[in-house]
Simulated assay, not measured.
Amino acid sequence: MISDVASSREGITSRTAILSILGFWAFHFVIVTLRAAVLGFDDQLEMLVRRAVVTLVSIGITMVVWLLLRRVHGAPLSRRVAAAALLAVPASIVYSAVNYYVFYDFGLPKSVVIANKADEKTLTVQVDMTHADEKSPVMAIADNAANGYFFFAAWAALFLALTYAAETGHAERRVARFRAAAQSAELRALRYQVNPHFLFNTLNSLSSLIMTDRRDAAEAMVMNLSTFFRTSLTGDPTEDMRLSDELRLQRLYLDIETVRFPERMLVDIAVPDALMDACVPGLILQPLIENAIKYGVSPARRVVRISVRARESEGRLVLAVEDDGDDKPTGATIGEPGVTNGIGLRNVRERLAARFGDAADAAWGRRPGGGWAVVLTMPLVRNGC
């Protein structure tokens, strides 16, 4: 939690910034030391100590630069780059002055000489001030500050790159959290879209049972309705449920509707026992069965069969809800892109897309033998609900 807060405020945590400083100057220290050893300078131990002093001071200077750069965190990148470029100027001057004092003014070992005249200028900057008598202290410090500026500018570039990467990662995580929250809200909204006609029709049927003094049937209907709504509204809409539990809920719903259409509706549920533990989005079958009753059973003047089927195909779960009622006035043959003005089927397709992405699909249309069918295909998931 603290690390996240620091990341959002500073771009990178203080720990990361400090480690970048220590790592940068440790690398510089090692490279310069190896260079001196390869060139065969004398008094390596004493020079190592002086170099370590300069490195420690350089770390302190860079710490100050970092603390000042933190003040412009959140500013446009161009402003931060300009701030880093400007801060590197005084930092390089202080670094060069310290380097001059440690390697020359403090007393340079007489045995340290430059073996290769061609490298005299470079080695004077990096290692010693043997020929400082040829330049004034100001000129020597200014000459060395040019190289020092490169060091601090290089670290500042590294710091800005790390900060930008951290900011980008933080923004991506925020977007991911918002996307997950939006998806959860979408799933909840889709799950809670209970058709009000179902409730109104059920209450009308219940009223009819009471008026005709069919108390036992009315009581059973009230208990089924209560169980259905309690289960459907209290479950987490973002979680899956076992197919067996989904079918139990749909049987409750069908029992309620059977009271309305006792002579016109037959129900056939055929699901293999091996698929009962498959995980499906909760109430994913509800809109399909509701549509079958609304468009197949309700307008019919004959018995209409509603079938619920499930099968496994190539590691995927296939669910189908069919009715043999009259053909819908608009629609495509099953397997083609369906044409519908209702929200129920779109609701199902959107829920599948939110849950499984492109791995799931919903197709609907007229059956070859008449009636209407909806087929859902999704990954077969077990023991995950």
Score class of each variant (00 low, 15 high):
residue 1 M to L: 06
residue 2 I to A: 13
residue 7 S to I: 05
residue 8 S to A: 14
residue 19 L to G: 06
residue 20 S to N: 06
residue 21 I to Y: 00
residue 23 G to I: 11
residue 24 F to V: 14
residue 25 W to F: 14
residue 26 A to W: 14
residue 30 V to T: 13
residue 34 L to M: 10
residue 36 A to R: 11
residue 38 V to F: 11
residue 38 V to A: 11
residue 39 L to T: 05
residue 40 G to K: 01
residue 45 L to P: 01
residue 47 M to S: 07
residue 57 V to C: 14
residue 60 G to R: 10
residue 60 G to W: 01
residue 62 T to G: 04
residue 65 V to D: 10
residue 70 R to M: 14
residue 90 P to L: 13
residue 93 I to G: 01
residue 96 S to H: 02
residue 99 N to P: 02
residue 99 N to W: 05
residue 101 Y to T: 09
residue 103 F to S: 03
residue 115 A to I: 13
residue 118 A to S: 12
residue 122 T to N: 09
residue 124 T to H: 07
residue 127 V to W: 10
residue 132 A to I: 02
residue 134 E to P: 01
residue 137 P to D: 06
residue 140 A to F: 02
residue 140 A to M: 07
residue 145 A to N: 08
residue 148 G to E: 03
residue 150 F to R: 03
residue 151 F to C: 04
residue 153 A to M: 07
residue 156 A to Q: 01
residue 166 A to T: 12
residue 168 T to H: 09
residue 168 T to G: 00
residue 171 A to E: 14
residue 171 A to K: 15
residue 175 V to P: 07
residue 178 F to P: 02
residue 179 R to Y: 03
residue 179 R to I: 13
residue 181 A to H: 09
residue 184 S to T: 09
residue 189 A to Y: 12
residue 191 R to P: 01
residue 200 F to T: 15
residue 201 N to S: 14
residue 202 T to E: 00
residue 204 N to V: 00
residue 211 M to I: 03
residue 211 M to W: 09
residue 213 D to P: 00
residue 219 E to V: 13
residue 220 A to W: 04
residue 221 M to D: 03
residue 234 T to I: 12
residue 234 T to P: 05
residue 236 D to I: 11
residue 238 T to Q: 12
residue 242 R to P: 04
residue 243 L to Y: 00
residue 249 L to E: 06
residue 249 L to P: 00
residue 254 L to T: 10
residue 264 R to H: 12
residue 266 L to I: 07
residue 267 V to Q: 02
residue 269 I to M: 10
residue 271 V to M: 09
residue 272 P to M: 00
residue 275 L to A: 11
residue 280 V to N: 06
residue 283 L to D: 04
residue 284 I to G: 07
residue 287 P to Y: 08
residue 288 L to A: 12
residue 292 A to H: 05
residue 293 I to V: 15
residue 295 Y to F: 15
residue 299 P to V: 14
residue 299 P to H: 10
residue 300 A to F: 11
residue 300 A to Y: 08
residue 301 R to T: 04
residue 307 S to L: 13
residue 308 V to S: 11
residue 316 R to N: 15
residue 318 V to S: 11
residue 327 D to A: 12
residue 327 D to Q: 04
residue 331 G to W: 15
residue 331 G to I: 00
residue 335 G to T: 07
residue 339 V to P: 04
residue 351 R to S: 08
residue 354 A to S: 10
residue 359 A to P: 05
residue 361 D to H: 02
residue 362 A to D: 05
residue 362 A to L: 12
residue 367 R to H: 11
residue 369 G to F: 12
residue 370 G to C: 13
residue 378 M to W: 06
residue 379 P to L: 03
residue 381 V to F: 01
residue 382 R to L: 10
residue 383 N to T: 11
